[in-house]
Design a protein around this nucleic acid. Sequence first.
DNA 1: CCTATTTCGGTATTTGAGCACCAGAATAAA
DNA 2: TTTATTCTGGTGCTCAAATACCGAAATAGG
Lengths: 134, 134
Amino acid sequence: MSHLINISEAASLALHGLAIVAQNSPNKVNVKYLAEKLDASEAHLAKIFQRLNKSGIIRSFRGPKGGFVLNKPAKEISFLDIYEIVESKIILNDCPLHKTGCPFENCIFGNALKNISKNLYESFKYIKLSNFNE
Amino acid sequence: MSHLINISEAASLALHGLAIVAQNSPNKVNVKYLAEKLDASEAHLAKIFQRLNKSGIIRSFRGPKGGFVLNKPAKEISFLDIYEIVESKIILNDCPLHKTGCPFENCIFGNALKNISKNLYESFKYIKLSNFNE
DNA sequence: CCTATTTCGGTATTTGAGCACCAGAATAAA
DNA sequence: TTTATTCTGGTGCTCAAATACCGAAATAGG
């Protein structure tokens, strides 16, 4: 039982959480609220938002009435940006045996995987936080 | 550090291993030979080929001069077939929060993920064992 | 038969991601 | 200045997937 595309729950929570932050702009949104809305663990969300904060995509405020706000317009934040922050670095797929040494001169994968994952990469660029309306 | 597309080393070894089997047809190919060619663990390859055998895609022969042969033409074996055997079942990606409950009526993902992974699925169908030439 | 070879299949181990916990630091409000 | 609230960041746990191990079963060849 496997998904074709690698999207961790963390990446998904980051995206949805940020969508909520965008929605509530310019008010701050705190982890507790996000956890309720997303039916997720506070601890886990807190960790994810720490990373997002460090990346500069959001700003954080401690203390009572604290929380998070976007640090740039929602139109300028893509799923690719978020994905890259949460999953550290994106690698376009190639023949998975290339490191250990694919035995074939003309690998059966050809450029198929590279092309496909390049498409995927471009698609992720087009999903923006501002796509969301409710 | 994350790959966009989920391809385990097992799936990759299965594909490359089968390509070697196809190449040597109609002779049998054993695990030891495959392990050398692919610079991989015998134990791991053995397990993978057990699964492939059970699925009917190959036939196995025990004992001296034993090994594996394809059980159908290379043209009729796609990467999708192999992937599904090794990874058990493919799930097309959708909003990863749909199970626990995406909070948005119009999910930010829309049908994007579903469409993208459907494309991926179709692409995997077109990579056949017979694509390989050397 | 007997032996060497090879797959079979159950089980054990490893590893890494996902997730949780908790004490500490910052800050708003009274 | 005190208290309650909220993020911070280090560490520790958990669990499933990936991988390894090993004795058993099959069989080809002599």
